[in-house]
Nucleic acid binder design. Structure first.
Length: 592
RNA sequence: CGGGGCGUAGCUCAGCCCGGUAGAGCACUGCGUUUGGGACGCAGAAGUCGUCGGUUCAAAUCCGGCCGCCCCGACCA
């Protein structure tokens, strides 16, 4: 490709549209342009990179017996009504009507269509297992798109769907995806960490997210480098160690003027926050049939509430922080609340499982400026539900060996879900088993965001001058820079360009008549890993100048063997990338 | 949805407080010079100041509504 004709300019100045490194780099390098919030055009360079990422996905999916197909982006509403998600999903799903008034939706994912396809294609256990995948556009009307390609509304996802007759089959395909996703990350040059995650409304019990670890990530994770335990904060567990206490002290009502927060009360009483019980109030929604109810949660004073686990503990559809009036309506005094003296007919009381283990807590007395000391679960107060509802924290003891967990942030590049039979049952995707009995197909679903993967690569492989993409992702392998329009240099560069093309080397040829500074600056920006320069200086030295992007260690390669030299360097780039495939985490080697 | 910021030429931004001729740099066009790390001179083209309304003799500037974009939070099958 000649740079003089490439569609897509570099930007000299940092675009103002977003703060994230990847979006600024991709914009400056002429890869992407924003059309609206969360909607991007991919210019030719980005398109080439995306196609390379897609090709890697195809190879990895094919390697685990996937079959590529393609399903529509526009779906009739009925299939989403059948699966139930028409009613469960809110404004995130784009809904519209066709000219006849038929309700349509833009696909957020494709479980429903796969289920519909199974109804006609799969009838017998003899046809299972199967795995299908596609690379297709999704639309999710995110409440807040952000960070360039990291969180967009329209994006291409590789989504695959496993179809099995039983859970053993599902487990096996799940494990195959687990390993394939690690290979995918390695081939892109990024480390993906598999973390336990919340299956959420996808249903099923087991799910993992594949995270690219970076401080700019939007998900919070806990990981332990020693045991390999890794989990999304939502589902992270940790060891809970009660404060030592020799005996139960008596319950004593103490005056605590103006000590409204846990920190203040603990300080006032001269104890650690670990000796206190903290109350947090939510309003729980339980569906249209049931009225919403107050959910009162109690965790030890040094901890926070894990809202997702609290929601599961009370089997609520959703939780929101309670208003002060809602708290007082059950007899609680904000700032001085506890499970004692609460109207238990109007609220669900949930205690973290550490609370019954903890002796002699300070809790609220439900009266302004008063607390109790020496409160003990069972004797002085009880809950309706005891469950692990405390949020893991930085340094919390690993659930396996008790070593401190590390808090990190990550970007979710992929996820894998064991769906089970939820969709096949609702959509009627059944097969006849060996006994001739109808059974629902056991499904799994597995996604990878293609653009998000590119953003993660750009995030990692950038410096102040631009991107330095791995050879597997870079739109071109080498950038050929010609300096000077003098006849000899021009002829040599043109000849080398033709030779590189003939040798099937992916070359971006800067044939523009701009100053050397512009060419080098653009070469640094564009993300091409190798650079070859032809100039009168290089010709005088015996050929072309060649090396890694921005390297000071440049070698002169004779023109007649230049192609071979460049091919060798490309091969070495791939080899060093492929070394990442060794010692990858696998399902078998995982701990968590 | 809550909080904050912004919207002026293709890009980055100044001008707005204090109302009166729409600006700079980069990019672009032409001519000439220049060619190893974002060159220089001369000439030129380019904006309905997001939008609608109000105040005023007069609005980019003051006031109000709306729209859009970014950031923090909520949310995220």
């Amino acid at each position: 490709m000649r740079l003089s004709t490439l569609f897509g300019e570099t930007l000299r100045e940092v675009p103002s549209e977003s703060d994230s490194v990847s979006s600024q780099m991709l914009a400056r390098a002429g890869y992407v342009r924003q059309l609206a919030a969360g909607l991007y055009s991919y210019l030719p360079l980005a398109q080439r990179s995306l196609r390379k990422i897609e090709q890697i996905l195809r190879e990895e999916m094919d390697a685990i017996n996937g079959q590529e197909l393609c399903m529509p982006v526009v779906h009739p509403a009925e299939i989403w009504q059948e699966s139930g998600r028409w009613y469960e999903i809110g404004d995130e799903m784009a809904r519209f009507q066709d000219r006849k008034g038929r309700e349509l939706v833009l696909a957020m994912t494709h479980e429903e269509v796969v289920g519909i396809l199974c109804k006609t294609e799969i009838r017998s256990y003899r046809q299972l297992p199967q795995m299908v995948y596609h690379l297709q556009t999704k639309f999710r009307d995110e409440p807040r798109p952000r960070a360039g390609l990291i969180r967009v509304r329209e994006f291409v996802m590789k989504d695959s769907y496993s179809l099995d007759q039983d859970f053993e089959g599902l487990q096996s395909q799940y494990e195959a995806h687990y390993d394939a996703y690690h290979r995918f990350g390695a081939r892109l040059g990024i480390n993906l960490v598999a973390v336990q995650s919340d299956p959420g409304m996808m249903g099923g019990k087991i799910a993992h997210e594949f995270m690219y670890i970076t401080p700019v990530g939007e998900d919070s994770l806990v990981i332990c480098d020693e045991t390999g335990y890794a989990a999304n904060l939502d589902v992270a567990s940790f060891q809970k160690i009660p404060e030592p206490a020799s005996h139960e002290e008596p319950l004593v009502r103490v005056h605590t003027p103006d000590q409204k927060t846990i920190a203040k009360v603990a300080h006032f009483c001269g104890v650690s926050t670990r000796q206190t019980g903290k109350m947090v109030f939510y309003m729980g929604e339980f569906g249209s049939e049931e009225p919403s109810r107050l959910v009162a949660a109690c965790v030890r004073g040094d901890m926070e509430v894990n809202e997702l686990q609290l929601q599961y503990a009370v089997k609520a559809q959703s939780l929101r922080p309670a208003e002060t009036s809602e708290i007082t309506s059950v007899g609680c005094v904000p700032g001085f609340a506890s499970f004692r003296d609460i109207d238990r007919s109007k609220a669900i009381l949930v205690a973290d499982d550490l609370i019954p283990e903890s002796k002699n807590l300070i809790i609220g007395a439900n009266e302004v400026d008063w607390h109790y000391t020496g409160a003990n679960y069972g004797r002085d107060f009880t809950a309706d539900v005891v469950a692990p509802i405390a949020l893991a924290y930085d340094g919390a003891p690993d659930p396996i060996n008790g070593k401190p967990l590390r808090f990190v942030r990550g970007i979710e590049v992929g996820n894998i879900f064991q769906l089970g039979t939820r969709y096949s049952e609702r959509l009627g995707a059944l097969f006849n088993d060996q006994d001739g009995k109808e059974q629902p197909i056991v499904m799994g679903s597995y996604g990878i965001g293609v653009g998000r993967a590119l953003a993660c690569v750009a995030e990692q492989y950038s410096d102040e001058y631009g991107m330095d993409l791995p050879i597997s992702v870079a739109p071109y392998q080498v950038i050929l820079v010609s300096l000077g329009r003098a006849g000899e240099v021009f002829e040599a560069a043109e000849a080398l360009y033709r030779e590189l093309l003939a040798a099937n080397i992916e070359v971006l040829y800067d044939d523009r008549s701009v100053s050397p500074g512009v060419k080098f600056a653009d070469a640094d920006l564009r993300g091409i890993p190798l650079r070859c320069t032809v100039s009168s200086r290089s010709l005088n030295n015996g050929g072309a100048e060649f090396g890694r992007r921005r390297s000071k260690d440049l070698q002169i390669i004779p023109l007649d063997s230049a192609v071979a030299h460049i091919q060798k360097a490309i091969d070495e780039c791939f080899e060093s990338l492929h070394q990442r495939l060794e010692n990858l985490p696998t399902w078998v080697s995982r701990v968590s």
